[in-house]
């Protein structure tokens, strides 16, 4: 395998192809990225630091992190349960549910926002009932979590479901013949097998949630120090001519989601 790869390296077409790809990558991705880093460096670390630690920016970052974490915690349970039900049981409407799981990937995020406002907003029946109980969802922090739940719904389901479908039932069956209860089987046999895929789904959801903008902008209410998430803050600073403020928070967000992505993939590698 490696010898054929080495042989191919000498091919002129191969080199052309590689440099073509790298150029494209440069124009679309690498140059803009380094432009941002350069701009941040030229602004100076103290300026960046003061922009990040200003209470409004800090609150926005913390809000993004905490809503993303809450969403992931909920999504891990509901996603695994959904994958389980889809993989193991037959019930009427299963085909429809299976197809609609991908809906959040297909729907534009701003449309997601509109949908949620239509369903839970103050003009909807459900919204009226919810605020009657004193727990309005739209324009509150719970609304942000709701939007993130919608947007990230497929991640855990779609990473757990194939694993569950290809799981060798022999182990579960042998555990069952040894008299283990269903719950014990799930906890001791199935869950360990699913765990890596759950973690990878969770990692993807988390980094997607940190950056989510279109749906959150519709449902968050955008109140500083209250429901303004980091991407909304960045947008506000861009519009308000404060590039450095936007940059500073962007860098923090970028770092957080990169770290979570890398951590998950390293962890997955170690698990083999």
């Amino acid at each position: 395998m490696s010898s054929t790869v080495d042989q191919r390296r000498t091919s002129i077409y191969g080199k052309l192809l590689r440099w073509g790809c790298l150029l494209y990558l440069g124009v679309v991705l690498i140059f803009p990225l380094s432009g941002v880093v350069l701009r941040a460096v030229s602004a100076g670390p103290s300026r960046i630091w003061s922009e990040v630690t200003n209470p409004f920016a800090w609150h926005a970052i913390m809000l993004s992190l905490s809503t993303a974490i809450v969403m992931v915690l909920i999504s891990v349970f509901t996603g695994t349960a959904t994958a389980w039900v889809l993989a193991r049981y037959e019930f009427p409407g299963k085909g429809l549910v299976n197809a609609l799981v991908d809906l959040p990937f297909a729907v534009p995020t701003i449309v997601t926002g509109l949908m949620l406002v239509a369903m839970f907003g103050p003009t909807s029946t459900l919204g009226v009932v919810l605020s009657g109980f004193g727990t309005p969802v739209i324009y509150e922090q719970s609304g942000i979590v709701l939007a993130l739940l919608f947007v990230c719904f497929p991640f855990v389901v779609r990473s757990v479901q194939p694993v569950l479908e290809n799981l060798d039932p022999a182990e579960e069956e042998s555990a069952a013949t040894m008299g283990a209860s269903r719950w014990t089987i799930f906890r001791r046999v199935t869950l360990p097998a699913l765990f890596p895929s759950i973690v990878s789904g969770a990692g993807l959801s988390f980094s997607r949630a940190l950056g989510e903008f279109g749906s959150v902008v519709m449902v968050a209410g955008n109140r500083p120090m209250s429901t303004k998430t980091a991407p909304l803050y960045v947008y506000g600073e861009v519009e308000g001519f404060n590039m450095e403020g936007a940059l500073a928070v962007s860098l923090v967000l970028l770092t957080c989601s990169l770290v979570s992505l890398i951590a998950v993939s390293k962890w997955a590698e170690r698990q083999g």
Partner: peptide, 16 residues
């Protein structure tokens, strides 16, 4: 309760 991006969005929110 809501701070929209523009004055007009704000009014649309009020209408809702």
């Amino acid at each position: 309760s809501v701070m929209d991006g523009s004055g007009r969005q704000s009014l649309a929110t009020f209408l809702r």
